[in-house]
């Protein structure tokens, strides 16, 4: 009896703790997932093309419209299938990732630099400088960004530079507004005032006492804007206004598949999924960074 009691009695709380630990671990992994996926895209964009020994824009017409997993005439396997010209979609997705990441990075870099410079100087100096900058921003805000990009990209010949410029023309505004409002409030902080009183030069005050506090939130915004730039580039390419047709872009691939949606869904769907997944993951990463820097501010 007593032995039975002993055996039954110990109601071990032990299984509960590992369960909770497992749940927090699962939550942590899920939370880290977008960043990991984003990282994989970047890695694929940088080194992926090194592992592809064929041209993503060359194909055999015999291999046209093959579904994912088919064997090609040259013996290789088309993991993601082929398009209407027999070109391998896997290659296009990987090269497209490179295009997207490259253009997104370039656009965000240019926009962030321009926006940070304009916004910080306007917010810190105030007065006429601020008035002029604010009016320019107001006017640009009146245009939907993608519309302005379409106009610019439509007027000029298709090229990488035009795409980057067309997307940066409105993209910097977000950075300018963020840094302007932060600079305006930082300007009133006592440490900025005491540097002013000590005769520290303006440029140095901005570099040392203002910019370091704007850098974090700007980085978070850059991530969000990166997703937007990738999406916008795909839209331009989809409309035939983006990169020259010799280059590979998800937007072009999606456009190329739109006549085959019923018969060969994979042509549009696979690059579409690649694009959506990247934009979602970058967006989540940006949100987390924003929250992180918001808390620290």
């Amino acid at each position: 009896m007593t032995t039975m009691g002993l055996v039954q009695n110990p109601a071990p709380p032990a299984p509960l703790a590992p369960a909770r630990a497992r749940r927090t671990r699962v939550r942590r992994v899920v939370a880290a997932l977008p960043i990991v996926v984003f990282g994989l895209y970047v890695v694929a964009a940088i080194i992926g093309p090194l592992f592809i020994d064929y041209s993503p824009v060359g194909g055999e017409l015999d291999d046209r419209l093959l579904p994912p997993g088919s064997v090609l005439s040259d013996g290789g396997t088309a993991l993601f299938g082929t398009d209407a010209l027999g070109r391998d979609l896997f290659g296009q997705v990987v090269y497209g990732a490179r295009t997207s990441v490259f253009i997104g990075t370039l656009v965000v870099l240019i926009s962030a630099l321009v926006g940070l410079a304009v916004g910080t100087v306007a917010g810190y100096r105030g007065g006429t400088t601020d008035l002029v900058a604010s009016r320019v921003i107001d006017v640009l805000l009146a245009f939907p960004g993608i519309l302005l990009a379409i106009v610019i990209a439509g007027v000029f010949d298709r090229s990488l530079a035009i795409v980057v410029i067309a997307l940066s023309v409105t993209n910097w505004i977000g950075f300018a507004r963020l840094s302007r409002s932060m600079a305006m409030s930082l300007r009133e902080r006592d440490w900025v005032k005491s540097a002013t009183v000590m005769g520290v030069r303006r440029r140095r005050i901005i570099a040392r006492h203002i910019l370091p506090f704007i850098a974090g939130p700007t980085f978070a915004l850059a991530t969000t804007e990166f997703a937007g730039a990738i999406l916008a580039e795909a839209s331009l390419s989809f409309l035939g206004l983006g990169l020259p047709s010799a280059s590979v872009s998800w937007g072009q691939t999606i456009a190329a598949g739109k006549e085959y949606l019923a018969s060969a869904w994979w042509i549009s769907a696979i690059p579409g999924i690649a694009l959506a997944l990247l934009v979602i993951c970058v967006g989540f990463t940006g949100d987390r960074l924003t929250r992180y820097f918001g808390r620290r501010r």
């Binding site: 902080r189 006592d190 440490w191 005032k193 005491s194 009183v197 040392r208 006492h209 370091p212």
Partner: peptide, 15 residues
């Protein structure tokens, strides 16, 4: 001329 401000913390750059 030097000035000392009221709030001891915000008078120094936290970084």
């Amino acid at each position: 001329i030097a000035m000392i401000f009221q709030d001891p913390r915000s008078a120094l750059n936290p970084r």
